[in-house]
């Protein structure tokens, strides 16, 4: 096992989620033309937490929520050692002309977001697409992609990993937090 460091504790985590939610409300007003789309698998938790907070604050319960799977849009089929498992794409609305917010937990190289854009555009032509992430790993981008909403920016070594741990994760400790691990401990 390598070293694990908590970089966001449960209290800060909650504050950060709330801030992101308020920023979205500020920008999107009544969400009438907005869709929040979580990227499978890990962006989906963040998207549902954010939409819960937004619905609580605004009193609305009809915000469009979707899940987007990008497996078939990846560009690394031949490079990968193991095959990622495909998950569900659930977009119970037309993205045509909507203001879409793509949501993921960690932004690293930007390749996932590139794939997500392709996957999203296969469903129609949104009016605009924004990106919200909990963690932005700066200086590690391989494509020209920047998020509009950022929970926390971190500058870390390329052989370290950031993991967002949700309270409901299997073999988690029941607390929302973010931790930094070195690659050698990636056996979980």
């Amino acid at each position: 096992m390598g070293i694990r460091n908590r970089i966001i504790d449960p209290v800060q985590f909650e504050l950060t989620l709330n801030r992101l939610a308020y920023q979205l409300i500020e920008e999107h007003d009544d969400f009438a033309q907005t869709a929040l789309i979580g990227i499978q698998p890990r962006g989906v938790h963040l998207a549902s937490r954010l939409s819960d907070i937004i619905e609580n604050v605004t009193g609305r319960n009809d915000i469009r929520k979707g899940q987007l799977d990008i497996t078939f849009f990846r560009d690394d089929l031949r490079q990968r050692q193991s095959l990622p498992q495909a998950s569900v794409t659930k977009l119970p609305f037309l993205v045509e002309d909507l203001r879409v917010v793509l949501i993921d937990d960690v932004l690293f190289t930007g390749r996932t977001i590139r794939a997500a854009l392709d996957a999203l555009l296969a469903h129609g032509r949104p009016r605009s697409v924004e990106l919200a992430v909990l963690i932005d790993r700066r200086f590690s981008r391989e494509l020209p992609i920047q998020p509009k909403y950022v929970g926390r920016s971190v500058d870390i070594l390329s052989d370290q990993k950031v993991r967002v741990r949700w309270a409901h994760d299997e073999n988690g400790d029941g607390q929302d937090h973010v931790e930094l691990t070195s690659i050698s401990s990636e056996n979980d």
């Binding site: 849009f73 990846r74 031949r78």
Partner: peptide, 11 residues
């Protein structure tokens, strides 16, 4: 879907 194609096996 409206666009019934994915770029998975492009090469």
């Amino acid at each position: 879907r409206p666009i019934r194609k994915v770029p998975t096996l492009r090469d």
